[in-house]
Each structure stands twice: as C-alpha cells, then as structure tokens.
Amino acid sequence: MGQALPPLSRRGLVMIVDDEIANIEIINAVLEDEYDVCFALSGQEALDLARTAQPDLILLDVLMPGMDGFAVCAALKQDATLTDVPVIFTTGLGDSEDEMRGLSLGAIDYVTKPVQPPILRARVANHVELKRLRDQLARMAVTDALTGLSNRRHLERTLEVETARLARQQEWLSVVMLDIDFFKQFNDAYGHPAGDRCIAMVAAALTRAVRRATDLSARYGGEEFVCVLPGADLATAQSVAAEIGRQVRQLGIPHARSGVDAFVTVSIGIASARSVAGAKPQEWIDMADAQLYRSKSEGRNRITATVFEHGLPGHGQPAGNDRAAYPTAQLGLRATG
C-alpha cells in the first residue's frame, strides 16, 4: 500500500516504486537526508500516488508482479501531468536490451542493484536539478515578466482546457476582464516607469482578490487583465469582481488626470455561461470584452455583467435582456440601471 504523502517542504520529492520493502528501506536510507521520499509497492499504486504527489523524480523497479516497470513508465509518459517527471529504473537486470527498452520508453537513467549510495545520490541530484531548471523555464514561458501573472498564451491554453473539462458536466465558467481607467493619461502625467509600477500593483491586487487554486489571473495586454473562474456562476464572478475593485481602490494610487476619481480605478466586464460540447473559449473573451466596453462607455469605475448562451457558429448571445437583469454596478458606490 502506498505511503501517505510527506509534509510540504522545499526539498525535492522522490518516489520509490518497488514490491520489496527491503529495497525501499535501503534507497530511502540513502536519500532521506536530502529529499522527501514517498513509495508505492505496485505499478497501479505508483500511478495513483504519482498523480497526487507530483514527484520530482521516480525510482522505478523493473521486475514487479502484475504491472511491471516498463508498463508503469509507458503509462507515466502518456499522462500529460506526469510525462515530464524523470524516471530512473532500478533493477538487478544487467541486460543491455532491457536497458535500451527502458530508455526508449522515456526513462532518463538506469541504476543497478544492489545500489551504490554515492552513485545513486549523484544521479538523483543531477536529474532533480535538471527538472527544476526545466520547470523554471516552463514557468517563464507562460509568465508575464512585469506582473508575475500568467501571460496571454497561458490564458488561452487554460481556457481551452477548462471549457472542455467543464463541458462534460455542463458546469459554469466565468471570465472577468478589467482595464485600468484612463491609463494613457496616467502615463502622460507620471511617466512610463510609474505606469509599469501601477500595472504591477494592480496585478498584485488582482492576486489578492482571486484566491481559489483553480482560478487563473493573466495580463491580457497593456493595462488589461483577464481572470478565468472555472465553476463560478454569475453571482460568484460578481463577488470576485467587486473584491478586485475594492483591492485596487485600497492601493490608493494617485491619479490626477482620471475622469472618475482622484485615485486609480478599474472598469470590469463579466461573461458567465455553462460550458457545453463545442463551446469556443473565444466566446467568453468576446462577451467579457463587450461588457467591459459597456462599463467604460457608461462612465468607468464599474462592473457590467452578462449571462450568455452559446450561439452559432461559435458566437455567444446574451440570455434575454441582460442589461435589465444584471445592471451596471459602480465600484464602491451604488448600482445603477
């Protein structure tokens, strides 16, 4: 039976897969001073535990009853969430054909039993460090450099994944789009370095307001941001949007050339719909953008929202009289018709 996960730490997590407890104890003794360790005693347990633990490296025995190490490695490499986890085979086999088979399945290295502690520690250290570097590069590829939020590329990919996932049960998905009010005038008054600081501060406020682990906040471009809220209906999205407005207001960033306030404010548009088979992610973006346009055209510093139905060919349509059902809300002030 697989081990309970160790408490979270900054140390790398190594998963040992072996049907012999004695082998696990030996490897654990070699690695426990430098890494957190979890283990599984069978192939299926290994797959289940790996999906939960997301280890930094897997030490995988080849010869196991039932699902052997080769089958486990193949399954790991076919799982999108685990394919990048390095696998080192641990085996008593000395056959070069078996070694080639393991490497062809995606394993990154081979260690023979009985293990030699210095060699095992060195190989594990090298591969854990390489994975950390790859993970860092992957994060940089989907992160906006100025704000630390997701970039547009990651946003678009996330929307694709979430619309498909939520469509299975026709669950809600909401998108919140916001724009810093009179930002050009802010740059003109205070300069572009101050404008960059303003964008970064608003991004930090966004992070404080959008707190669920499943939510995503991204810089869409310039002074515009988008939040993806899987499973959130309109009421939930409106609550998040109101908190965004409150957090931005609390920043207290002076804006002498704003047309609505003495401080920096944001305009917000919300689009909510149940995801269905064939729904296009761009529908949420287009509808949220339309609501943001309404917020800006009706005075800025406010929230405008709609529930929409999926139209053909792929363009959302408001569900009924959305303006009457979901009136504009002026941020921090009062609702208006």
Rank of each mutant, 00 (worst) to 15 (best):
V124F: 09
E25M: 15
I24T: 05
R101F: 05
A164I: 13
K280Q: 15
P114S: 04
S150N: 11
P6D: 11
A141K: 11
N151K: 11
R51D: 09
V62G: 08
V260S: 00
T214D: 11
L229E: 00
I88F: 12
S150Y: 10
E20V: 11
R123I: 11
P114V: 06
I119V: 14
K131Y: 12
L103M: 15
D135V: 10
V226E: 01
V264Y: 00
E162G: 05
V142T: 12
A189Y: 01
V176I: 13
G69C: 11
Q291Y: 01
N126A: 14
F186G: 01
P118F: 04
H310M: 09
V17K: 02
E25T: 13
D61M: 05
C38G: 07
R249I: 06
A241Y: 03
G299V: 02
G278E: 10
E25Q: 15
L47I: 06
A218N: 07
S275D: 04
Q3D: 15
A203Q: 09
E160F: 09
A107V: 13
R300I: 01
T91F: 00
D289Y: 02
V72P: 04
G231P: 08
K280P: 06
N28E: 15
E156Y: 07
D289Q: 02
V111R: 05
M100C: 13
T236E: 15
F182G: 03
T214Q: 14
A164W: 06
S9D: 08
A273I: 02
A189D: 04
N28W: 12
R334N: 10
E99I: 14
S295C: 09
D144G: 08
T163H: 04
L251G: 10
V72Q: 05
A232D: 07
P254C: 03
R101I: 11
E162C: 05
Y293T: 00
D48P: 07
L60T: 09
D79G: 01
H310P: 04
A324N: 12
P114W: 14
L57Y: 13
D322Q: 12
A50I: 02
P193M: 08
E97I: 14
A204R: 15
A213V: 10
R302F: 01
L149Q: 05
A262T: 12
N321G: 11
D196P: 07
A279L: 06
E171P: 06
G43P: 03
C198F: 02
G252C: 12
A290F: 01
G320I: 00
M140W: 12
L137R: 12
D188F: 03
S150P: 01
D68L: 04
R139T: 12
T112D: 02
A271W: 03
N126V: 14
D68A: 03
R274S: 04
